[in-house]
Structure formats: structure tokens, C-alpha cells
Computed example of a mutant assay.
Amino acid sequence: MVHVEESEGRESLFGGQISVSAAFEGSEEIAEARDLARSFLTDVQAVHGLPVSARAMDIVQLVVSELVTNARKYAPGPCLLTLEVSGGAVEVTVWDSGPVLPIAKAADPDRVGQHGLEIVMAVCRSIEMHREPVGKRIKAAVVLADDPGGDVTGRLV
């Protein structure tokens, strides 16, 4: 079951919060999470007039897919996805009920799978992981636009 909630209430750099949230309960809904991300960024561009590069569109969908997949795979119960525009980036936040923070594994060319967190860490401007009173929250930021030369802007190393 997916529940979507849009918000534009709080003040932000763009005159109002630009965000959307949805709860996901089944692994079959991971595609719906990607669709929500694509739709949200399309609206950010068309309705709010903010630039969203094709690269950002692809990377946000990838990050959403990886984080929601991990939440559905390793934590019982639903997960909550929130997408919010802040400081020239989209913040992808996933909450789930699992208390264990994920750890990126050491590079291993023979390992099949379990590269999701490594990928997210490589393509995002920043990533934060926090334990919550119940579960954990992971927030990854993806820059919305590339500079005119095609380079990624805003990457924090």
C-alpha cells in the first residue's frame, strides 16, 4: 500500500517547502518509489521552474531504488520515503524500523550483489545515517543540476 503526501507549507529558499512523502510496505512497490521520484522531479522542473539535469533524474531514481530496496529487504514493516528540495539538491530520506545502520563493505570484485550503499555513497553529494527512537533514517543528497560544462556541481568530498 502506498500513501503519498505532498507538502509546500514551510518557508524555504524557494518560498515554500517542495517535498513529497510516501509509505511503502511491499517489495513490489520499489518500482512505484522510483516512479514517485521521477514524477516529483518532473514537477520540480515544470511547476517550480528549478533545473533538474537528466543525470540528477537518473541518479535520484537509482538512490531511491537502492535505499527503498534495502529498507524492504532488511527491516520489518513499512518504510517511509521523503523527497525534498533543499539548497540546490534533492534530499532522499528513507526511514525504516530496522535499528542496525548499514555499512559499506570493502571492495571485492568477486562479491555478487550488496553494492547498493557503495553506489549511493559514490553518486551523492552527501549521505547521513541516524538511529531513531524506532529504527533508522538515511538521508542522501543529489545535486539537481550540472554546471554548463557538464560537470557535477556541489559535490562534497
Rank of each mutant, 00 (worst) to 15 (best):
E5Q: 11
G116S: 13
V152Y: 00
A31Q: 15
V4C: 07
M121N: 06
D147M: 14
E5P: 00
K136V: 02
R10E: 11
S97A: 15
N70V: 01
V92F: 05
D147F: 04
G15S: 10
Y74Q: 09
E5F: 10
A71E: 08
S19H: 05
V120M: 04
L50Q: 02
I103N: 02
G154M: 04
A141Y: 01
A104E: 00
A23G: 13
G154S: 08
V2A: 09
A107I: 00
D58C: 01
G116W: 02
S53K: 06
R10W: 04
S19A: 14
C124M: 02
T93C: 05
L67N: 06
I59G: 01
C79M: 03
V63K: 01
M1H: 10
L83E: 06
A56W: 06
A54Q: 15
G98N: 07
G26S: 15
H48D: 11
G150L: 10
M129V: 12
Q61N: 12
D43M: 08
I119Y: 03
A31C: 04
I59P: 02
R72Y: 05
V142W: 02
V92S: 00
E8W: 04
G98D: 07
L13C: 00
G87D: 14
T42W: 09
G9M: 06
V94G: 05
L67C: 04
P76Q: 10
S39N: 13
V85K: 06
Q45T: 12
P148W: 09
E32W: 02
P102D: 03
I103T: 11
D110I: 03
P76A: 12
E28H: 15
E29Q: 14
S27K: 14
M57C: 02
I138A: 03
V63H: 01
S86F: 12
P133V: 11
P76K: 14
A75Y: 07
A104H: 00
E66R: 02
D58E: 11
P133A: 12
A46V: 12
R55F: 03
D151M: 12
G113F: 04
